[in-house]
């Protein structure tokens, strides 16, 4: 994953506002990177650009060896399918889908076979084999985030993006989720890009990138 001279400007109240300013970044396969910084420093924007969820105003971004700049929305989605996993602060599970169906989603979208078997195995690996047919509203916050982890790893992605994965959980449950995430990451040798405020969590990553006012302050 590579970002070269990436900037992002938006218009706010008719005035241009720079959120990211000439960010350069290289993340090697299997590496783990924590993006830290205060609120409004541009962490989430950088994550969304690296994942191809948005396009930079200037600069180049390559994901899994492919430049994102020339790709439209659908092409970028196709690039993510099967290669990229996500863990969100608010879990983002589909309410009408069971735990199993939620986990099957990325596998089906990537067109991989055996979605049901893979999803079942993934839920077993996060200790939820007894909760396959449960709907999100029937699960606790920690269980929902475990389903989200199973969904993130189920398609065996090359890269995992995590945005404040413990932000909505208490300290103990959050700790368990972090353990689980790093364990799965190690087992699959996945590249991990993590946005967090939590210094302890950031310290567990191989590298830290600190943003301030949209600029890289330390790497």
């Amino acid at each position: 994953m590579r970002a070269s001279g990436v900037s992002k400007q938006v218009s706010s109240g008719g005035q241009p506002l720079t959120i990211l300013d000439h960010v350069d970044l290289d993340v090697a396969a299997g590496e783990s990177l924590a993006i830290v910084g205060s609120s409004g420093s541009g962490k989430t924007t950088l994550l969304s650009l690296l994942a191809g969820l948005d396009l930079p105003s200037s600069g180049e971004i390559a994901l899994a060896g492919t430049s994102l700049n020339g790709l439209d929305e659908d092409a970028r989605a196709a690039l993510r399918a099967g290669r990229v996993g996500f863990v969100f602060q608010s879990f983002q599970l589909l309410a009408g889908f069971t735990a199993l169906e939620n986990v099957m989603l990325p596998v089906e979208l990537a067109g991989l076979g055996d979605a049901r078997a893979r999803a079942t195995a993934a839920l077993e690996s996060v200790g939820l084999s007894a909760r396959l047919g449960h709907y999100p509203q029937q699960l606790s916050g920690g269980e929902q985030q475990r389903v989200a982890l199973a969904r993130a790893f189920c398609g065996e992605p090359q890269i995992l993006f995590a945005d404040e994965p413990t932000g909505n959980l208490d300290t103990i449950t959050g700790g368990h989720i972090i353990e689980l995430m790093f364990e799965l990451n190690r087992a699959r040798n996945t590249t991990l890009v993590l946005v967090t405020h939590d210094a302890t969590l950031a310290a567990r990553c191989g590298r830290r990138l600190t943003l301030a006012s949209g600029r890289v302050q330390a790497q």
Binding site: L53, R80, L105, L109, A110
Partner: peptide
């Protein structure tokens, strides 16, 4: 919300 999530997970339009 659903559309955004599905797109994030790799679903096309």
């Amino acid at each position: 919300r659903e559309t955004a999530l599905l797109r994030t997970l790799g679903a096309g339009t």
